[in-house]
Design a protein around this nucleic acid. Structure first.
Ligand SMILES: [Mn+2]
Ligand SMILES: [Mn+2]
Ligand SMILES: [Mn+2]
Ligand SMILES: [Mn+2]
Lengths: 220, 220
DNA sequence: TTTGTAATTTAGGCAAGTCTAATTTATATT
DNA sequence: AATATAAATTAGACTTGCCTAAATTACAAA
């Protein structure tokens, strides 16, 4: 393990929380993301800063350095490749793989990941529609447009989700929604932005604004 | 993880060292097996004893309880299934997989192991000829006869090795020896028990007593 | 039966990672 | 400009797993 499991988890969290954002990531955001306390986060930030993986100013927040970003992308690459393995090879549901990948991502062997990548046929996206960084840490532009804010009547293909947690994905499973599925937006309620959509299977489903925000779509 | 990585490693070591032996396992044996100090071993034995995974008497040595044996066999099952995956699916050499399996064996998910086992076709032996415990912790009788002590002139099939370490396996690779290969014992030196064998490929190789002790064979 | 010695255990400490409670600081609001 | 307050940091502790050095103990040899 190049870095400890704990260090890797912090780097990943800081990278995700700060990605595509100008402002530094706050201690409290990291604490809530990792389900730990602000005091623990402060301790770790000092250690990561010492190792030049993050640039950190007391009370001012933190961001990953180039070195820290690279480490984070390596972890993300491992995470997403294992997710592909678990769904495509071992036939797990897309709602079951995230927490397993959280463990497997810390197994440290470049050779293992390289061979896994080759065996899987160099997949470019994980089961949730997230792009897989290449071996040099290059990440393709990810999921951009989310289902909230599209026009009534328009057609889309689900490209991914912005939350990998099991309960949310099981909820989508019940509605027949997953990456690759086509959607037609029948109606958007002007009051609460809730949406009625026709799913490929023919079913019609109501989606609250909270949910449409977490579903990403591409042109049909 | 049902138990910590460290606890699992101790249980596995105690199980292996005590297996098929009447006497209890000594603190110093465990320390040398796990490359740690006797003091650390004593600390851990107290913890494992507290959890009823081993029966331990100060100064008298230790053995796994039924519960500890079951835990050890679960770890061994995971270890050997991952070794099969790494060689058969990812095409690692049999000399490269042991240390990777040492990490993967601690990933805790019965469902993962059950699916891996199914995907691999329920293999009964690992790449080193060791039997894979089933999901109930039942272990088939393992490798029994080793190459030292066989008769001059006799024919054998290599069934496995008693040491999974990379340098030893690379040594055997250089001589074309691996499980499944046929051997004919051409000559045994009466002084040092060193052996000249004909390998399937046609080559003749000298094997010292230290080496023949670590190679197991079955009837040709 | 005493004694020497090697193995083992205990004592005391250290690092990583976490926590709660107390304190400090940035900053928004009078 | 003073002050309130929410966020962040520090202080102090705990657990796990490990270590070195100093006792202890089993047991073999005298
Ligand atoms: Mn995930
Ligand atoms: Mn994912
Ligand atoms: Mn092995
Ligand atoms: Mn093996």
């Amino acid at each position: 393990m190049r870095y400890t499991t704990s260090e890797e988890n912090y780097l990943k969290a800081i990278f995700h929380l700060g990605h595509g954002q100008q402002e530094a990531v706050l201690t409290s955001e990291i604490a809530s993301n990792l389900n730990t306390t602000a005091a623990s986060v402060t301790d770790m930030l000092k250690k990561l800063s010492e190792k030049e993986l993050v640039s950190y100013e007391r009370y001012r927040g933190v961001r990953v350095t180039r070195k820290g970003e690279r480490a984070a992308l390596d972890v993300i690459r491992r995470h997403r490749l294992w997710e592909v393995f678990l769904t495509d090879v071992l036939k797990f549901g897309w709602d079951e793989v995230h927490h397993l990948a959280e463990e497997l991502e810390h197994v440290s062997s470049d050779e293992l990941i390289s061979r896994l990548d080759r065996f899987l046929g160099h997949p470019r996206f994980d089961p949730h529609g997230d792009p897989i960084p290449d071996k040099n840490g290059k990440l393709l532009a990810g999921k951009v447009r989310s289902l909230d804010g599209v026009n009534q009547g328009s057609d889309w293909v689900v490209s991914g989700v912005l939350d990998d947690a099991t309960p949310f994905l099981q909820f989508l499973n019940r509605k027949g929604i997953r990456p690759g599925i086509r959607l037609n937006v029948i109606h958007i309620d002007p009051y609460d932005q809730s949406m009625l959509v026709a799913v490929e299977s023919g079913r019609e489903e109501y989606l609250s604004f909270d949910v449409t925000q977490l579903i990403t779509v591409a042109q049909a």
